[in-house]
């Protein structure tokens, strides 16, 4: 069995090499690294929220130096119009009134607390800085996590489906049905090739963008999350390639997954947009698992790993059933072989 697996494995590697998959992955790695190191951390500034104060009675005498004082209510309004993400404090009536020009209910509370902490830094309302990362370190971890998640969920998924569609088109699945080899080796080999490729990608992306020292510290957790996400996506890709007729149908499904599945996850995890149902979205948990791994706070429960294992197991069973059906029916081969040969002979 080991010999059979090696044969299929090397054949799959050659398929990927000839399909320029590794070249594309290296290109993506280079592009992401350039973007993170020379674009994102240099050009994107995550400045603190501006807190503006109008205190005509001079009540606030020991406020933070971060407070920007306005000389009139009109000036306070003008300052907030210039930066609508900022917070305004009106002390003209002797009591703090908080002004928020643009916010959401979820963020409002945090902004108000932050502004209060600047107003009375000596008292209970003191802002606590979570974690010991510098802004750049946070940025690097955040963006590397997002890029890795995108690469694994969108690009790897596309890659594995493309390879299987190609084999389906060549009709070779039908040949494998008559070979003395277990069908599951064919699937396991593909999963192994893509998993190894994803693990190498994750290692390089993490070390190049988070830094070698901090990257090595979080690598074990990142790789665990990579294994889970890579297997999920590879199995979904295989399933799609086996159930769908052609690559055109697959591109439609791909769009559905990209737009309607991945978008709410990114929005919920990275912005103030929160939907209650997102907690039932498995990819939200996978994304948060990845994010926690990058920030060195892996706190996923037993249920998370058990759920992932069950999900992967079920997907594998579904893929294996679809693979058996495909070997039995193999409808794609006739079309490909015929058309391809006709084209060649016309040429």
């Amino acid at each position: 069995m080991g010999k059979d697996f090696r044969a299929i494995f090397w054949k799959d590697i050659r398929m990927l090499v000839s399909g320029k998959f590794f070249l594309l992955a290296m290109g993506a790695l280079a592009l992401y690294t350039l973007y993170v190191n020379f674009g994102y951390v240099r050009l994107v500034e995550l400045s603190m929220y501006k807190v503006c104060l109008w205190d005509p009675q001079g009540i606030c005498v020991d406020g933070s130096l971060l407070l920007q004082r306005a000389s009139s209510r009109e000036e306070l309004d003008r300052m907030l119009l210039e930066d609508p993400d900022g917070v305004g404090i009106d002390l003209s009536r002797g009591k703090a009134e908080f002004l928020l020009y643009r916010s959401t209910p979820q963020v409002e509370r945090y902004l108000e607390d932050y502004a209060r902490s600047l107003l009375r830094p000596q008292e209970d309302f003191k802002a606590e800085v979570l974690g010991a990362f510098t802004t750049e370190e946070k940025q690097r971890r955040e963006i590397t996590c997002e890029l890795l998640f995108f690469e694994l969920s969108a690009v790897g998924f596309l890659g594995i489906a493309a390879v299987l569609f190609r084999e389906k088109g060549m009709g070779v699945l039908r040949v494998h049905a008559c070979l003395p080899v277990r069908g599951r080796l064919f699937l396991l080999s593909k999963l192994a090739v893509f998993l190894l490729s994803d693990l190498c990608f994750a290692i390089l992306l993490t070390l190049l963008n988070v830094g070698v020292g901090p990257g090595l510290a979080i690598l074990p957790d990142v790789l665990v999350e990579t294994v889970i996400l890579s297997l999920f996506m590879a199995l979904i890709g295989l399933c799609c390639a086996l159930f769908l007729q052609d690559f055109r149908q697959f591109t439609m499904i791909y769009l559905v997954i990209a737009v309607f599945v991945a978008t709410p996850v990114f929005l919920s995890a990275n912005t103030s947009v929160k939907a209650g149902w997102i907690l039932f979205h498995p990819f939200y948990h996978l994304y948060m698992g990845m994010k926690n791994a990058f920030f060195g706070t892996p706190g996923e429960s037993f249920f998370y790993y058990a759920g992932a294992a069950v999900g992967i197991g079920l997907l594998y069973m579904l893929t294996a059933a679809a693979f058996s059906r495909e070997m039995r029916d193999a409808p794609g081969g006739l079309r490909y072989a015929g058309k391809d040969v006709e084209k060649r002979e016309e040429g």
Partner: peptide
Amino acid sequence: FEFPYLYGNL
């Protein structure tokens, strides 16, 4: 098989 099913890239 009726059609020559082979790996086109090999």
